[in-house]
Structures are given as structure tokens and as C-alpha cells.
Design a protein around this nucleic acid. Structure first.
Length: 429
RNA sequence: GGCAGGUUGUCCGAGCGGCCAAUGGAAGCGGACUGUAAAUCCGUCGGCGUAUGCCUACGCAGGUUCGAAUCCUGCACCUGCCA
């Protein structure tokens, strides 16, 4: 992970990106390669504030930006205060507009999530930009004359997203989104000499529209590429399960749960994810793939992946705590054998709650609900009935079962488990 | 503006006066087999809880009826055809 010396650029950048599978679509790759080798390129990648946090999909873009910067190119990270007010068309239908206050708040949170990944000093220093800066004061007349004139509606209608949405309907607002994003590229090109944009493959239409606009408006040739859409082995999207998206914000998804996600990745996907989400070298990744293939049950790849990505997002200290917690909880050994401080630390990582107990301790059903492992008492009863409830790693089959005081580990802790891998700690006081 | 059709649980989609907390998929959750993997098989899938019970739910608000997701009226939104 060495940064290229001041002023220089890494001539192998494009090859590395291609090896990692990060280029799913692109404008002329030879031209892009020439530009990247010729000197430091100013590039941009945009993030729309459509939620309070970025997630796994955005992480691909953040890390790709970091790769480009480490190779000597200058990032412009755009948080879409303007585009976030509009919303780009998606297949699932028309978006609900968010208020200006909410968008502004999300812009700040997202900026804060991106900044740690980029270097704001040095010859390829990063810059944060907000497209509200050049759209807020723009008049509708200027917009229609200067930007709109370059967008033939017949071609806009031919875009895949738009075609699919024509059945169920699409507002003029979302239909116009592509003009705003294209204008961002034009503005950044004019203001800062930005000549490359990348984004997710679902953004390819917007990316290439921006390239077209810069050419039509200014006669300049700029570049774009799209990273691939990552899917699970069965072709479905990530994040549809596990109760939601893989958020980067620790308040929306605990670092422990984040780590567990990566650890549980399918064998077939480990190599791909290591290439996209880690800064391990080609040699290291190929070695991990070989060792994983040789002894898959050891999950070498998954462990490295979980450690690397969690370290990038949540830091080395937190990752070390999580690994210790996982080892304790999944160790398979007797929980009674664990030192209490170790157990307590592990449970706090996995998620722990305090419960005030009277003369009697709560029932297993109440413990499942209190710990958040079950959403309702009905669900908790069902879990017990299905044989999925465990107390201190022993299956409980009676929904009215109450642990005794002597079951408390270290005098205060109960380990509640639902299913094979969802743990929570309950601290009884 | 006129006419027609539509709005059901996380999603898709049946139901068209009582047998409807609502058929069937999918997702989710649990179990078995494994490796905290995949595939497969089985179970489960509104809440309170155990009461032939109550509460909430079939776009929103009213009405008809002993009884409505189902019928009527108004409103909102969506789709199609005609202007």
C-alpha cells in the first residue's frame, strides 16, 4: 500500500483496476490509460444523500477513489446536495422527496464518512464539493438554454431505466435527473479541470451522459468508467437480507454485525470481494484464494476479508475487539470456562442489554425480546418452539423457562442466542 | 375534461358479503446436514397471549348490513383509452 512519490503516477493503475474487476463499463479504455499514465488526473465520484449513511455499494466507490489517489490522481468527492433533492430514477418506482433540512443533514453525515478514506494534503490532495454550489443560483431559463438544449428527449427516452419506468410512470423531476448529474461533470471540468468520473454500474447512463455533455458544450473529451454491480452467488443483491443494507455508520449497523457479514460471505465470492474491498496485493489475494480452495472449512479468505474491510471502515482497535469476541462466542468451548472480563467484552461487542431482575429472573421469551433477538413475544415463543433458543449455549425448549441465579456467568451475565449465530448478552442487575 | 380499470400483509399476487389475520409465490426466521459457506429437505411466518378471547390490518373518510377486504358515497393517488 505505498503511495506513489510526489508528482508521479503509478503506470500500472489501470491494469490493477481491471484485475480487481472494478471496470464493468467504460469510455475508450486506451485513451483513459494514456491519460492516467501521462500525469495526475483530476477525477470525481458523486454520492447522493438519499439516506443518513453510505453502505457497501458506496464503499466500492470510496475505495476505488482511494486507489486512484494512491496512484497519484486527485479526487473530487462530490456530495449531491442538489441531486439528492431530486433523486435519480430507479426501477422500484418514484422516490419520495426529502425535505431540504433532511438532505442538508445527510450531506454532512456522508461527507464525514468519506473524508477518512481520502488524503487532503499532498500533491494529489482531495477536495470535497457540493453540487448545490452551482445549481442553487441557476435560473430555470439558463438551465433549459445552456444544459437542456444538449439533451435530445428521444435519447433520454431510450435509456433503460426510463424505458422500464414508462410503464408505471416517472415524474418530470426524476426524468430530468440526468441533466443535473451531467452538469456536475461539466462544471467540475470547467472549474477544476476534472476529466474522469466513475460510479456504480447503475450510474452508467448518467456517467456517459456527462461525457456527452462535456463534449457537446465544450468540445472536450473526458473519461468515465463504471464499477460492477456486486451480487451474491445466486445473483440477488446484497443487503436484501440480513434485515437491511450493510451500512457503514456504526449507529445503523454495529461493527460486530458488519464484521460478521464479511465473515459469512459465500466461498465463491471471497476472491471477488477481496479484490474489490481490500488493499491486499495480487500475490496475497491469490495466495488466500488457493488456501481457501484447499481447505474451505478454515475460511482463510473470509477471515482476511472481514479483518481487512472492518479495519478500513471501523479501525484496527475495534476490529481486534470484534475478532476476540467472535473467537469467544463461536469458540465452541464451554462458556463457563471463559474469563468473565473476556466474556463481558465479547458480549458488549455482539450487543448487550441490562435487565433489572426481581426475586426471579426473566423467562427465556422475555430475554429474547429484551436482548433484541426477537421482535415480539410471539416471535420469541415461536423461536423457542422451533428449537432455536439457547441460554448459555444450551437449547431451551420451554418458553416459560427461567434461568436460576446460579446460571449467571460471573454472577451477572447470560448469553442468549437465537439460531446458530445470533448472540446477545444480558447483564442482570 | 370524459370513460374504464386499479390501490391487499416485507415484496409480488389471489380473494369480491359471513367458513378471512386473509390462498399461492418470494424474502425473512428456525431446524437437519456442514465449515459462523453453498445447495437440499423440513418447519414457521400481525400483536397480546392461550381466552370457542381481544387488538390492529386489506389507499383515506363516511355509509348500508346482524355482519364488509368484499356493497354504496366522497376524497387521494396510479394506469389505460378518448378529448
Amino acid at each position: 500500500m505505498s503511495t506513489t512519490p510526489a508528482g508521479g503516477t503509478d503506470p500500472h493503475l489501470l491494469d490493477d483496476l481491471r484485475w480487481r474487476g472494478l471496470i464493468a463499463h467504460s469510455t475508450d479504455l486506451d485513451a483513459l490509460g494514456d491519460a492516467l499514465r501521462a500525469g495526475s488526473v483530476r477525477f470525481y465520484v458523486g454520492f447522493d444523500p438519499t439516506a443518513p449513511s453510505l453502505h457497501m455499494g458506496h464503499l466500492v466507490q470510496i475505495l476505488t477513489a482511494r486507489r486512484l489517489q494512491q496512484a497519484g490522481h486527485a479526487p473530487y468527492a462530490l456530495v449531491g446536495g442538489a441531486t439528492g433533492m431530486i433523486g435519480d430514477p430507479r426501477d422500484s418506482g418514484e422516490r419520495t422527496l426529502n425535505s431540504a433540512e433532511v438532505v442538508a443533514q445527510w450531506v454532512e453525515r456522508i461527507r464525514g464518512q468519506i473524508e477518512p478514506f481520502l488524503d487532503f494534503d499532498g500533491p494529489a490532495a482531495a477536495t470535497m464539493v457540493n453540487n448545490l454550489d452551482w445549481t442553487a443560483g441557476l435560473s430555470a431559463i439558463d438551465f433549459l438554454r445552456d444544459i437542456g438544449k444538449h439533451f435530445p428527449v428521444n435519447r433520454m427516452l431510450a435509456r433503460d431505466v426510463v424505458k422500464r419506468r414508462l410503464e408505471d410512470g416517472i415524474s418530470y423531476t426524476e426524468f430530468s435527473y440526468v441533466l443535473l448529474q451531467s452538469m456536475d461533470f461539466l462544471e467540475l471540468h470547467r472549474r477544476h479541470g476534472v476529466s474522469l468520473q466513475f460510479g456504480g454500474s447503475d450510474q452508467w447512463g448518467n456517467l456517459s451522459a456527462g461525457v456527452d455533455l462535456v463534449r457537446r458544450a465544450d468540445g472536450a473529451h473526458v473519461h468515465a468508467f463504471a464499477t460492477p454491480l456486486l451480487t451474491r452467488a445466486d445473483g440477488t443483491k446484497y443487503g436484501k437480507s440480513e434485515g437491511g443494507a450493510l451500512w457503514l455508520d456504526p449507529e445503523l449497523l454495529s461493527p460486530y454485525a458488519f464484521f460478521q457479514f464479511w465473515l459469512n460471505v459465500e466461498d465463491e465470492k471471497v476472491g471477488e470481494l477481496l479484490r474489490v474491498f481490500t488493499f491486499l496485493s495480487r500475490e496475497e489475494i491469490e495466495d488466500l484464494e488457493q488456501r481457501s480452495a484447499a481447505e474451505p472449512h478454515r475460511r482463510h479468505g473470509q477471515r482476511a476479508l472481514a479483518r481487512e474491510v472492518t479495519t478500513l471502515v471501523h479501525g484496527a482497535e475495534e476490529t481486534a475487539r470484534i475478532e476476540a469476541a467472535s473467537a469467544a462466542l463461536f469458540g465452541g468451548g464451554d462458556l463457563v470456562e471463559l474469563a468473565v472480563p473476556t466474556l463481558a467484552a465479547a458480549l458488549r461487542e455482539a450487543g448487550a442489554v441490562e435487565v433489572a431482575a426481581g426475586p426471579e429472573l426473566p423467562t427465556i421469551v422475555d430475554l429474547l425480546v429484551a436482548s433484541g433477538l426477537a421482535a415480539s413475544k410471539g416471535e420469541a415463543r415461536r423461536t423457542v418452539g422451533e428449537g432455536g433458543a439457547y441460554l448459555n449455549n444450551t437449547r431451551v425448549t420451554d418458553p416459560d423457562h427461567r434461568p436460576a441465579r446460579t446460571d449467571l456467568l460471573g454472577g451477572t451475565w447470560l448469553v442468549v442466542r437465537r439460531g446458530k449465530k445470533r448472540f446477545a448478552g444480558v447483564e442482570v442487575r
